[in-house]
Design a protein around this nucleic acid. Sequence first.
DNA 1: CAACACACTAAACGCTTGTTCAGCCTGGCC
DNA 2: GGCCAGGCTGAACAAGCGTTTAGTGTGTTG
Lengths: 249, 249
Amino acid sequence: MSSAEAAGVPEGTSSTGRPPSDGSARDRIRDAAVLRFARSGFGASVRTIAADAGVSPALVIHHFGSKDALHRACDDFVLRWIMGSKRQNMGKATNGQLLQVMAEIDEYAPLLGYSVRSLQAGGEVARAFVQHMIDDAQVYTREAVADGIAKPSVDEDARVRYLVLSALGTMLLSLTLDPPEDPEDFRAAVSNFMADQYLPMIELFTQGFLTSRRMLDDYLLYVGDPPGASPGQSDADHEHVPETTSEEP
Amino acid sequence: MSSAEAAGVPEGTSSTGRPPSDGSARDRIRDAAVLRFARSGFGASVRTIAADAGVSPALVIHHFGSKDALHRACDDFVLRWIMGSKRQNMGKATNGQLLQVMAEIDEYAPLLGYSVRSLQAGGEVARAFVQHMIDDAQVYTREAVADGIAKPSVDEDARVRYLVLSALGTMLLSLTLDPPEDPEDFRAAVSNFMADQYLPMIELFTQGFLTSRRMLDDYLLYVGDPPGASPGQSDADHEHVPETTSEEP
DNA sequence: CAACACACTAAACGCTTGTTCAGCCTGGCC
DNA sequence: GGCCAGGCTGAACAAGCGTTTAGTGTGTTG
């Protein structure tokens, strides 16, 4: 939590004090907008944001041109913030798999709410956010497979994409179904979610769900080898239980 | 204008015929609202819905009282429809696991868009929708475990909840990131999604992701037994021993 | 027939929205 | 000093929203 928003400056506008160095009002508006969008969604009104920032609605438009442009500016800001934070955290914890991504999210805290709203709304930030996570996870997963921590996949790219979409989507749906009373506290909600879902998730990641390979083998036989496949992976044929499961299309 | 009344009155009455049992205009408004909400989200205006139904905005309010009440009526209608369809499909395919849930969704087609919007927006329908899916999956999973198709879990309830949240959430996020150009066609989008994600999903379900049980065992050791697995329940505590012949060292 | 009920509508009301406009205030430059 | 640039504002505007109101037409009922 940065809590850098502690700029006092309540309405005691003695001589309209504003630091002359750089447009602090513009930044204050942007910060207020990010916070308000996170709290109330992107339907939040310009007037509300202006009130949060302690300025007039007209000034918001004066500085950003329109509400849409303000939204885009917030997207830019958050995206830049995330990318910086990512690069900073990239070094540590190369042991991580996908779970690591979730743990990292907990560190993204201040702008987590904004990201969640963006994911709910779709659009450019959401796509970029997910894509960056996928890129990260690709590195982690490759290393995990090389280190023998993770099993190889028939199609690594598809698996990484699925795992990221799954981890994010599950959390997103959970947050949507039971949103935190205080919209400020996405962080606590994420922690709760992790506490609830960690066991089944890691259980699935450890032992899988099905007892037989039949479904997978049938599918592989049906579609042929997918693009990324190198068929030499004899690593994974240890589990041939010739079980006659019930019928399946 | 006013060609609306000439268009599409299923009952043979030529002029403003309305059966005394149930008003057809009311139904037409509800149907138009469901479609419009699915197409444009719940922010769609009463005026738009009225135009779609070929009536005046005032009539919408006259019949439903308010836009919120109309929304609730649509929720009721869709929920009832889903529950009926569920009951109808419940008989077949008891072999299904969670994948079955996804396949079923493809059959929910007409109201799929509405459900997706509801899941995106959260609220009562979304919760009910998910809960019903969980209830279904609980039955399926129990049977699959009993039949030896699915592996047992340390906490079956938590697993089912996670699997449903994961399956739905993944699809929801995918649909949000790349929404279909024609909002009518959520069905095709779901099919595409399934085509893309089936392999990694079934691979994960078959072989898991991690090579060692260590993370799971560490977690179980750390938290002790989860709430669902009381020691008296002899049914499910055969899984505590670290047997897992399917895992490589 | 008159009288009522009710589906239905055009028009307007009140409100909120994003945005614009004219002008105030102040700091810096001549 | 004068004067301009620009951050900043209160007031207003147009558009859209959900909803209300007053009223029209029509089928049913006494």
